Amino acid sequence: MANTDALRPRRSVLYMPGANERALEKAKTLAADALILDLEDAVSPEAKEDARERVCAAAASGEYGSRELTIRVNGPGTPWHEDDLRAAAQAGPDAVVVPKVDSARTVREVEEALVAAGAPERTKIWAMLETPVAMLHAEEIASASERLTVLVMGTNDLVKELHAQFVPGRAPLLPGLGLALLGARAAGKVILDGVYNDVKDPEGFEAECLQGRQMGFDGKTLIHPGQLEAANRVFAPSEEEVERSRRVIDAFEEARREGRGVATVDGRLIENLHVDMARQVLATVEAIERARG
């Protein structure tokens, strides 16, 4: 069974550098479903403490509207990890994003630290899977805690760890992405695709969004506001999908009234599983509309 906030739209999840005050201000106006205020890769070591203070103040401000607001802390084993967790717990964002999660034990340790620091119940955990070990233990990680609601693919680090190359179609990553998707779905968790690095290649970005959606990802993590429109469009049901979903549900309900267990739409056999998928499409559309206010 999916976690209770699984239908919250996460088509577009934008990383924002925690050390950049102008970026944090701009984020209040962007059409992102969710924001990751970053204390890790986007912040130099000498700026970590100032960025932590700035990001936690932003998370506690209540000035980001309906956008889901998360904080990416520095990873386990770094000098900043424990202080980041304590500060994030006090700020009370929607979630804490934890990089380099390789085991269920790491998830449980993060949960214990958040509870000890007084994090509100609504502050969830998002775990980043970035290594071969994480791919091979995706189900174990996803099932480690009810507080963990989202898996986030760290595809750049995964390419590095695999000694692979960045290529169109992402063939070197597909086995790992598939394992992570299987783990997420087995545990009933949301899963977000990794970033696309070339912000000047909108066609390549949209193609990767489409691949991610076809594979089953719930949305995509982004590195530039220019990627928002395509991600929001590709990861939302199209008008054609919505219209067909309604016809599937109507046809199946009519068949049941007539005592039949199956129906046909456009010449195709319709069974319970197709109706469940159609209802998921309509529920996703309703969730997007609710988030827009």
Rank of each mutant, 00 (worst) to 15 (best):
D94H: 14
D94S: 12
D94K: 11
A95G: 11
A95V: 12
V96T: 10
V96R: 05
V96I: 12
V96S: 11
V96W: 06
V96D: 10
V97W: 07
V97E: 13
V97C: 10
V98T: 12
V98H: 10
V98L: 12
P99E: 11
K100W: 10
K100L: 13
K100E: 11
V101P: 13
V101S: 12
D102E: 15
D102R: 15
D102S: 15
D102F: 07
S103T: 15
A104N: 09
A104G: 15
A104Q: 13
A104P: 12
A104V: 12
R105V: 14
R105A: 15
T106E: 14
T106L: 14
T106Q: 14
V107G: 08
R108E: 14
R108S: 09
E109Y: 05
V110N: 09
V110P: 10
E111F: 04
E111H: 10
E112D: 15
L114F: 06
L114G: 02
V115D: 13
V115R: 07
V115W: 07
A116F: 02
A117P: 05
A117Q: 04
A117W: 10
G118R: 02
G118S: 00
A119E: 00
A119F: 00
A119R: 03
E121N: 01
E121I: 04
E121V: 11
R122K: 11
T123I: 02
K124D: 02
K124I: 00
K124R: 15
I125N: 04
I125G: 06
I125H: 03
I125Y: 01
I125T: 04
M128F: 02
M128T: 14
M128N: 03
L129T: 03
E130T: 06
E130P: 03
T131Y: 01
T131P: 00
P132A: 01
P132I: 04
P132M: 03
V133W: 08
V133A: 14
V133L: 13
A134F: 03
A134Q: 03
M135I: 01
L136H: 07
L136I: 03
H137L: 07
H137V: 02
A138H: 01
A138Y: 05
A138F: 04
E139G: 07
E140F: 05
E140R: 06
E140M: 06
A142R: 09
A142L: 06
S143R: 14
S143Y: 03
S143T: 12
S145R: 13
S145Y: 14
S145V: 12
E146G: 15
E146S: 14
E146A: 15
R147A: 08
R147L: 09
L148G: 05
L148M: 08
L148Y: 04
L148P: 09
V150E: 05
